[in-house]
């Protein structure tokens, strides 16, 4: 068993364990923090799979921006910081059964489909910033530009949504809400 394999197993177990904690912990802020662990482990797995640039982007955007956004959201919605008794709905068992069903289905499919196929990482081209940049701006320019338009649309949508006013917001103080909306937009 090579070093890569050992590292993969360790990182994989960390990702799975922290992911389970993300969906099961009773403390909401802890869930966000456990999500950081999962995403970081996945970034490590990207590194192992010769996707260097994707791994750094994962760290930057996911671990950095997305988790911070989620934490902001938790705070802006005045989520309690301590453990809560009611973070899950009443239908835990049916939901778990569905999740197990999905896991069994997918796992059976991939394991049965790729048994005996080796992933040879020795001669793989490492997806460094240079190669990835060349690839994106030579081969994938059009999807890249389309994606930029999508981002712009998402930005506009977020602004429009945050400027929506409802009738029952008067009693909660509008200036504060407007400030919150600007925070979200940023």
């Amino acid at each position: 068993m090579s070093v890569v394999e050992v590292l993969f197993l360790l990182l994989g177990l960390a990702a799975l364990g922290s992911a389970l904690l993300v969906v099961s912990t009773k403390n909401m802020v802890h869930a966000a923090l456990w999500l950081v662990v999962t995403l970081a482990s996945i970034a490590g797995i990207y590194l192992l799979l010769a996707a260097e640039f994707v791994a750094w982007v994962q760290v930057l955007i996911y671990v950095g921006a997305v988790v911070v956004l989620l934490l902001f959201a938790l705070m802006l919605t005045r989520a309690p910081t301590g453990p809560q008794p009611d973070t899950t709905v009443a239908r835990v068992l049916p939901a778990a059964a569905v999740a197990v069903l999905v896991a069994a289905l997918l796992a059976t499919t991939v394991v049965a489909g790729f048994t005996g196929v080796r992933l040879d990482l020795d001669g793989a081209v490492v997806g460094s910033a240079a190669t990835t940049g060349e690839t994106i701006f030579e081969k994938w320019v059009l999807p890249f530009e389309v994606l930029s338009v999508l981002l712009l649309a998402a930005l506009v949508g977020a602004i429009v949504l945050s400027r929506l006013r409802t009738d029952d917001t008067e009693d909660r103080g509008r200036p504060r809400e407007q400030r919150d909306a600007q925070e979200v937009r940023r």
């Binding site: 709905v89 239908r91 939901a95 569905v98 069903l101 999905v102 289905l105 499919t109």
Partner: peptide, 20 residues
């Protein structure tokens, strides 16, 4: 919404199984 989603997931799984 989560109830709806559960039905959707089960349905998709059932469709996948049926296709297989």
């Amino acid at each position: 919404v989560q109830g709806y989603l559960m039905v959707v997931v089960v349905g998709a799984a059932a469709l996948a199984v049926a296709a297989g």
